[in-house]
Design a protein around this nucleic acid. Structure first.
Length: 554
RNA sequence: GCGGCUAUGGUUUAGUGGUUAUGACAUGAGCUUCCCAAGCUCAGAACCCGGGUUCAAAUCCCGGUAGCCGCACCA
């Protein structure tokens, strides 16, 4: 008996049955790259579809697609060129690796001397165009593409906050040591939403819909003290100030609902708050959705951050573009304002070369200074005389103000989700002394939705089977057809890859045109008319009907 | 990147400095059976890559690559 832990069992199954394969295998593979085989690709596609259903269709955020390669400016502005790098140094004596601290000379662990400093920027760098020296980077997140399009998005959403935009795509990070299957890759898929909100309005219009969702929370405070998680409704968590804003809370609930819908185990999901020392300097509140894995413990699969105005401010500055939103007041405000009109002719004559500085000083003059009757240019104090400026008090109507939005960002690691889903779905049980391996994936997530199995490959059963297969394919189901080996063996084959329903053609089919449908999880069977198979399958997969009631239970 | 362990058919595994490299499961063909991995026959399919030592290397040595564990980082 070979003893494997769950990770090994899942990866072994994934490789053997065409979910996941190490990339470039015939050339020896390279860490951090995995191929999705036929079933893995189908599974991943279903996860992405549900994600889009959640965030784009139900959530109302449109999806966009921006290049995976970006020009240098994007990442200079975002800070990735300077900060998405680790300066590392190793102790020559004990081998411990440290992030470089300028004051550090000796190893803090053992006092040994340190080796040479090496920097890793985790971005892949390349050049754009033939002979061009224009630098390009493969993106390490999809977010920047969405920030860079802010001015277009704002117009698309007709100049109103809040609005959100979603993107699913490949991102690249030259990880130092990728391993652990698809939990840590150099090329991977993330699904991100950037929600732009008015920083003064952190309540969520649909908060009521999710306020009773119960979350397993692991706040920063508990991580530092007793290490216990709290089970709280979203409403309580926000009211107690554990989750700082309704808006973030709403999306934490959405993350949980999404994970449950695709088949995660509820008790294996928790939300961990970033502690002060790990939270990005610009972020206001950060949580990670973590999933419990058998070998690696709790691992991060979704991050949700309030990034504040960091990104928009950075791009506005670097690109010299306005990235604010005009937010109208409920009622326009009327106020009186002193309007100062410099007499350029007189100023020019009097101050000559310094005239520009004087007008600039006038332009930024405060009312207090104006009342003092002087302005300050450099070290000089200049009296404001009537020949230099004219002024008048005007009454003006202000209808709103410009606001730099804050960004709420849920960011899903799709490949990690694929692995965890396989692990959470993986089950073994004893059936009449035999080991049965079942992937208990929800029917609408399973890569193959049904398999058609003629009991025998003759007597016309095969012909009937082919007919059922075609009718299912015509109705949009991804199905398989299998007539090799005994019926039991074929059921087991499909249990192992999570096929939820098996349609069996038997001798009774020839008499009364009925077939059986077998439920993967219970192994129970119902009998339905051959012509009803597509509609019954549709209801079963959508979860609109209880299995035992979808036909005549055998 | 550093340290430790490891590398044999699709998967898992045995093995030895020397003929044609085990077995199991899986896969394909056939027979038989026919509603939960039955049986029989047959078939295809492997020593991670490169260098060295040796008459001879899958085996010993060195280097690389990959995997697992730890450090670090993260979706």
């Amino acid at each position: 008996m070979i003893i494997m832990d769950k990770y090994e069992k899942v990866i072994e199954l994934a490789k053997r049955r065409g979910f996941l394969w190490p990339s470039f295998e015939i050339y020896g593979s390279t860490a951090g790259f995995w191929d999705f085989g036929p079933l893995g690709t189908a599974l991943k596609r279903r996860i992405k579809e549900i994600w889009i259903d959640f965030h784009v269709i139900r959530g109302g955020f449109y999806e966009i697609e921006t290049p995976t390669m970006c020009i240098e400016d994007v990442f200079v502005a975002s800070g990735h060129v300077n900060n998405f790098a680790d300066l590392m140094v190793e102790c020559k004596k004990c081998g411990e690796a440290f992030k470089v601290d300028s004051a550090m000379e000796k190893c803090p662990e053992c006092g040994g001397s340190l080796g040479e400093v090496c920097a890793f920027n985790l971005m892949f760098k390349t050049s754009i165009g033939p002979g061009s020296k224009r630098i390009g980077y493969l993106r390490p997140e999809t977010a920047q593409g969405m920030f860079v399009d802010f001015h277009r998005l704002l117009r698309f959403y007709r100049d109103r906050l809040p609005f959100g935009v979603a993107q699913i795509g490949k991102v690249y990070r030259n990880e130092i040591s990728p391993r652990q299957g698809t939990l840590r890759l150099r090329e991977f898929t993330i699904a991100e939403v950037e929600i732009f909100i008015d920083p003064r309005k952190t309540e969520h219009p649909n908060f009521e819909d999710v306020k009773n969702v119960v979350l397993q929370l692991y706040p920063a405070k508990e991580q530092l003290s007793d290490g216990k998680t709290l089970k709280l409704s979203l409403k309580d968590a926000v009211e107690k100030g554990i989750i700082k804003q309704q808006f973030v809370g709403y999306h934490i609930a959405q993350i949980q609902l999404f994970l449950l819908e695709i088949g995660f185990s509820q008790e294996k999901i928790r939300f961990r708050q970033h502690k002060n020392d790990e939270i990005a300097h610009y972020a206001i509140d950060c949580w990670d959705a973590e999933a419990l894995t058998d070998r690696f413990g709790w691992i991060e699969i979704v991050g949700i951050a309030n990034r504040g105005d960091y990104d928009l401010k950075a791009h506005a500055k670097h690109s010299q573009n306005e990235m604010t939103v005009f937010v109208p007041y409920d009622k326009p405000i009327t106020r009186e304002r002193m309007v100062i009109k410099p007499n350029m002719r007189a100023i020019g004559r009097k101050f000559k070369d310094n005239a520009a500085k004087v007008t600039e000083a006038l332009r930024t003059l405060s009312l207090d200074q104006f009342e003092e009757g002087t302005i300050r240019v450099g070290d000089e104090v200049i009296p404001l005389t009537k020949d230099l400026v004219k002024y008048e008090l005007v009454s003006e109507e202000i209808s709103g103000e410009r606001v730099l939005p804050h960004v709420i960002e849920p960011s899903y690691g799709i490949d990690r989700i694929v692995y965890v889903l396989l692990e959470h779905s993986f089950d073994e049980e004893e059936v009449e002394g035999e080991r049965r391996v079942v992937l208990r994936l929800p029917p609408n997530i399973a890569p193959i939705q049904g398999v058609v199995l003629p009991l025998l490959s003759r007597d016309g059963l095969d012909k009937k089977g082919r007919w059922v297969e075609r009718s299912l394919r015509k109705n949009g189901f991804l199905v398989d057809y299998d007539e090799s080996g005994t019926i039991g063996r074929r059921y087991r084959r499909h249990d192992e890859i999570g096929t939820p329903f098996a349609i069996t053609i038997d001798h009774q089919t020839l008499d009364d045109d009925t077939v059986t449908i077998r439920d993967r999880d219970s192994m129970k069977q119902i009998r339905v008319l051959i012509g009803d198979v597509p509609s019954v399958m549709g209801e079963l997969i959508a979860g609109g009907v209880i299995f035992e009631k979808a036909g005549t239970l055998i």
